[in-house]
Structures are given as C-alpha cells and as structure tokens.
C-alpha cells in the first residue's frame, strides 16, 4: 500500500479437519489504519482462517508475520501478546459473569496480595463502557441479562481496553439493530483513525462494502482474490463470492 510494512501477513495457510481442507493455501495481509473485509459464503473458510490468527485453531502449514516478524501463535494467549484482539460472532462472553469480569477475563487486575481488585476492574469497565455505549448501566448483573448491543459493547470494550493493534471482528453487526449497527460503524471509523488494522468478516457484502478499504473473498477454503473496494462494484464482488472468479481488470491491482 503506502510502503509501510503490513501489520499482519498470513502466508499460505492450510487448515484441515479430518480429511476436509477448511483453508487451502490462503494468504492475506492487513496494513495499519486499514479495514479489510473478508467475504465468502458460510463454510467458505473465512472464520477458520481468522481463528488461526486469533490462536483458537492451529494451521497445518503456513506462516504468520506480525509487523514484519514471524509470529508463533499456538493459543489465544499468544495472539493477545501480539496485540491481536478478536470479537467473535458469538461474542465469547461468560453469561454468568458481570461486565467487568468478562472484560478482564484472562487478564484480571490483582491487588498486591494476589486477590482480584474487583473495585478497580469495575471502575475501568465503567469508564470504557460509558465511552462505547452511554446507555450502559447494568454493571452488577450477569451479562446474560444485557441487550444484544450492550453485550457487544462488552466484547468490543475487551479489545479496545487492551489496546488492540490488530482487531478481528467476526460478523460484528449480524445480531444488532439499526442504531447499534451505526454505533459499531462509527467505532470502526474511529479505531481506523487511531491506526488499528481491522479484519471485518461477513457473509453479507452490504455489511462491509462501505467500511472496508480492501475486500478479500474466499470460496470453498480457497482464496478467490483481493480487490480494492474503490475499484469494484458490489455486483462484481458478489460475482466473486458466488462464482469464485476475479472480475475483469481488477485482478492485477489486487496486491498493489
């Protein structure tokens, strides 16, 4: 893109479940301040690919480079060390715990005596959630009792609080209303301005077309191609998703 190193590069990733090639030799990259939409039908392998990056799955072969350096990601903890944060489609919240407990899950703040510093965690949670969603008030209830948008705010807060450099959002607006979808879009714009790279995964082109700088399309575990959003029409991308073919003329510019 503009000469800078990519934030993250996944090269020739292979993932197999049993005999099925879920991801078959896919390479993608992401630059600072960029939104890359990852598109494809359900089962195209996009979630699987991205779970390799977030440490939830292991690739059979292939390499990951973070800011030009080879990265070893074997579990979610490793991914977090590289400031890779993931907002899963399921949100990955423990429904029985409150917002602060979920926000800090796996990275709790402790007092000097080793016990959880619950008050400090609640204070931090209040601060960041107020910023993301001013209507957020239920700090002592289990997150099971929150609305879809508030639950999403908790999941996003988790990524933002820990200063993600690379943010993965899996179908972020699938379960949200119009108002909340707009809030997520605003947030993505804001994070982009802060120089964070974002992978936006969706099976619906309308969710990502206006937000993404580039679009990567997958079909049946294979990479169809990557295009710059400004070079293509929605129909052309739809063609890539359905037919698995690059549109005329766009192919050469993909890796610009």
């Amino acid at each position: 893109m503009n000469g800078a190193d990519p934030l993250v590069e996944m090269r020739d990733i292979h993932v197999a479940f049993g005999g099925v090639q879920a991801v078959d030799g896919v390479s993608i990259d992401l630059y600072p301040g960029e939104v890359v939409g990852l598109l494809g039908h359900n089962g195209a392998g996009k979630s699987t690919l991205i779970k390799v990056l977030s440490g939830a799955y292991q690739s059979r072969s292939g390499e990951i480079y973070v800011q030009g350096r080879k990265a070893e990601i074997h579990n979610p903890r490793d991914a977090r060390k590289y400031n890779i944060e993931t907002i899963y489609q399921t949100l990955a919240l423990a429904d029985n715990l409150d917002a602060a407990a979920n926000l800090f899950l796996g990275r709790e703040i402790r007092q000097r005596n080793g016990l959880l510093d619950e008050v400090r965690m609640e204070a931090e949670a209040r601060q960041i959630l107020k910023r993301l969603n001013p209507n957020f008030t239920k700090f002592h209830q289990p997150v099971a009792s929150l609305s879809g948008g508030q639950r999403q705010a908790v999941a996003i807060a988790r990524a933002v609080y820990f200063e993600a450099k690379i943010l993965i959002m899996d179908e972020p607006t699938a379960a949200l209303g119009v108002e909340e979808t707009r809030m997520v879009a605003d947030l993505i714009q804001q994070l982009k301005r802060e120089g964070i790279g974002i992978f936006l995964i969706s099976h619906d082109i309308h969710d990502v077309f206006d937000l993404a700088d580039r679009l990567t399309v997958m079909k049946n575990g294979k990479l169809v191609g990557t295009v710059r959003t400004q070079d293509v029409t929605q129909d052309e991308v739809l063609g890539m998703i359905i037919l698995g073919k690059m549109p005329e003329g766009a192919a050469q510019k993909a890796d610009a």
Binding site: A56, P76, R77, A92, L93, D95, N96, L105, G106
Partner: peptide
C-alpha cells in the same frame, strides 16, 4: 458459564 469463551480468553 461458557467453556468456549473461557478457552478463547486464554484460560
């Protein structure tokens, strides 16, 4: 509460 979430949180 959610075994998957626990695992994804690095537990």
């Amino acid at each position: 509460g959610n075994p998957d979430a626990a695992q994804l949180a690095g537990i």
